[in-house]
Design a protein around this nucleic acid. Structure first.
Length: 236
DNA sequence: GCGACAG
DNA sequence: ATCTTGTCGC
């Protein structure tokens, strides 16, 4: 699929904030997207391996056909991770591998789901949002743990599947605490770009099965990335 | 200085 | 995220 060269993928940390602020001004989270409007969805995740001070990253992208929920295509990439993890700057750490894998996809998916946040971020520029500028396609962020932004407070949603509460900062809904299955830990949903909050919530819920609290594409990418790492270790 | 902290 | 064994609970 085509990748848009928004900016170099290897950047000096001193430029992280200015890049996020520049892109944040171009985010559009007003578009409604319905499940029946999309045919293929990609799940993305990165697994890591630390050895003698060196860190390797393994990225896997799994594309599902929504009509059959079968995997249509996969793409992978691996390489040394040079950027340290810092809350708020996950994209600069993982994007190089993600974009490398995405560029290998033969067909462009209709939507991307990420393990991490979208606009639920100090500068509304979580990894799902940042990635959308390179992909040119709607993205949704699905985080497993809460990333507190500003003075946003959490309200626990009901235990019933599908119930959610809003995460609000300065009057703006920037994310949702969503119970994807009854009585399981909730996930934190936020639109990445080119899609609105309600559509992101609906789609994330619709893509979640009984085997995991995570949407199936994200869960699949998570498992496959670990398999990549395991095979790599066996060859070392 | 202290606490918080997506993956 | 990753390092790691057993173990409490449905």
């Amino acid at each position: 699929m085509k990748i848009y060269p928004v900016h170099p993928l290897t950047i000096n940390p001193s430029e992280f904030i200015s890049i996020q602020e520049k892109l944040a001004a171009q985010v559009d989270v007003s578009r409604q997207i319905y499940f029946h409007d999309i045919q293929t969805v990609a799940g993305v995740d990165v697994a890591y391996s630390n050895a003698n001070g060196k860190e390797m990253g393994f990225c896997h992208i799994a594309v599902f056909d929504l009509s059959t929920m079968e995997i249509m295509e996969r793409a992978e990439s691996l390489g040394h991770i040079t950027v340290l993890y810092m809350p708020g700057f996950l994209a600069f750490r993982e994007l190089p591998l993600i974009i490398e894998a995405a560029s290998q996809l033969k067909n462009s998916p209709d939507l991307f789901l990420f393990d991490g946040n979208g606009i639920l971020h100090p500068r509304r520029m979580g990894i799902a949002t940042h990635a959308s500028f390179f992909l040119g396609i709607p993205t949704i962020g699905v985080a497993k743990t809460y990333f507190k932004v500003g003075d946003s407070e959490l309200t626990e949603p009901d235990q019933e599947k599908g119930s959610f509460t809003d995460i609000i900062e300065s009057g703006e809904i920037i994310g949702r605490v969503l119970r994807t299955s009854e009585s399981v830990k909730p996930v934190f949903i936020s639109p990445g770009n080119q899609i609105d909050m309600d559509s992101s919530t609906r789609i994330a819920l619709a893509l979640t099965g009984y085997e995991s609290r995570l949407p199936i594409p994200v869960r699949e990418a998570d498992i496959a990335a670990r398999v990549m790492r395991q095979k790599w270790r066996e060859d070392q």
